[in-house]
């Protein structure tokens, strides 16, 4: 057993007994929010770590939240069916946008801007279809909960935050496992080769478009699940908080802050951003708007300039440097050189 594994084991145990420690509902709420966002950020990093910087994940989150809520409110279809439907829809949208992008080699700035347009399209569609979706005012999933009924499994609504906590821990752990599966697969090597030089990767037999599409669909599907769960937990969604440019940028930046190249980096990003917001709100007060966003923006600028691998990326880098003293003598050739 090495130190990081012990740390992970202790951490998981701490997460699992967290609700039993007798914290207030407020603390539990923060923890749940961190895990939901951590899951969504992990989903983004599955494609983001390979240089596919999407500013369109607001679209997938919006699809997840709205498909599930609309099916429940208008057709009475349970979220347990609604979530797979949302995953299929967002996967289809990801293919619809991703395939031409990857086929026509739209990368870098252009990929970011095309996906940005996608997230705005979804936000504006939600607003434009206001007769069905409630428009900018947002919508509440029809509640099955009454003072007598505290748990509605069918409606995926739970009055007790502890139930939510464990449900979301399961989803979050699922996200981490997907991250690890991708990390240890051939897909990772294919994607790393592509992000270095896609022509060279193609000449070695890597199916460039298929590899990119696979990570994009996995990422979009996870984000849709995250959006759906977010809607179910908050019991209120609106186009601004689930889709559009603001939420897309929030996703990208939290991942950068945490570190997108390590498994727990995106979760760390969620911890940093949510704790920052909450701490500022607690210390400065409720009446001061904008300070959290301002500090957050300044932090991002500093992160990108001075710590581009994120907090956790930096910590692990320092740690592994201490573990293995610099190799002397032969210098290994790096890929791509």
């Amino acid at each position: 057993m090495n130190v990081p594994m012990i740390l992970k084991g202790v951490g998981l145990l701490a997460v699992l007994i967290f609700p039993a420690l007798g914290f207030s509902d407020y603390v539990l709420h923060i923890a749940i929010s961190i895990l939901i966002w951590g899951f969504i950020y992990t989903g983004w990093s599955i494609m983001g770590r390979f240089g596919l910087v999407s500013l369109g994940h607001g679209a997938f989150m919006g699809i997840g939240a709205y498909v599930v809520t609309m099916l429940w409110n208008h057709a009475g279809i349970t979220p347990w069916i609604g979530i797979p439907v949302a995953v299929v829809v967002s996967g289809a949208v990801a293919i619809f946008i991703g395939f031409p992008c990857f086929r026509f080699r739209i990368t870098g700035h252009y990929f970011a801007l095309v996906t940005l347009a996608l997230s705005e399209v979804v936000r504006l569609l939600i607003v434009a279809l206001r007769d069905t979706t409630g428009g900018s005012l947002g919508v509440t999933p029809r509640s099955e909960l009454t003072p007598e009924v505290a748990v509605s499994f069918y409606a995926m609504q739970f009055a007790d935050k502890t139930v939510w906590f464990y449900l979301i821990v399961v989803i979050w752990l699922g996200g981490l496992l997907i991250w690890r599966a991708v990390d240890r697969s051939m897909l990772r090597y294919a994607m790393e080769a592509i992000s270095q030089e896609d022509d060279a990767a193609a000449s070695l037999g890597v199916h460039v478009t298929r590899a990119k599409l696979t990570v994009t669909v996995i990422s979009a599907a996870m984000t849709a699940v995250g959006g759906a769960v977010y809607g179910q937990y908050q019991l209120y969604i609106n186009p601004e908080t689930t889709s559009g440019i603001a939420i897309s940028l929030q996703i990208v930046f939290a991942v950068i802050a945490g570190g997108m190249f390590v498994q727990l980096g995106p979760t760390m990003g969620a911890v940093i951003t949510l704790l920052l917001t909450e701490t500022l709100r607690q210390t400065v007060g409720h009446d001061v708007y904008g300070l959290d966003v301002m500090v957050y923006g300044a932090m991002l600028v500093l992160f990108i300039i001075y710590m581009p691998r994120g907090v956790l990326g930096w910590i692990t880098e320092v740690w592994s440097r201490r573990q293995e003293p610099r190799p002397t003598g032969t210098v290994k050739p790096q890929p791509g050189e």
Binding site: V53, A112, F253, V295, Y296
Partner: peptide, 19 residues
């Protein structure tokens, strides 16, 4: 892409500042 993202940080900063 870092240059695009860093100005995104500035976006939040200016928006927060204005608020």
């Amino acid at each position: 892409i870092n240059q695009l993202l860093v100005t995104g940080g500035v976006l939040f900063f200016l928006q927060g500042f204005a608020t």
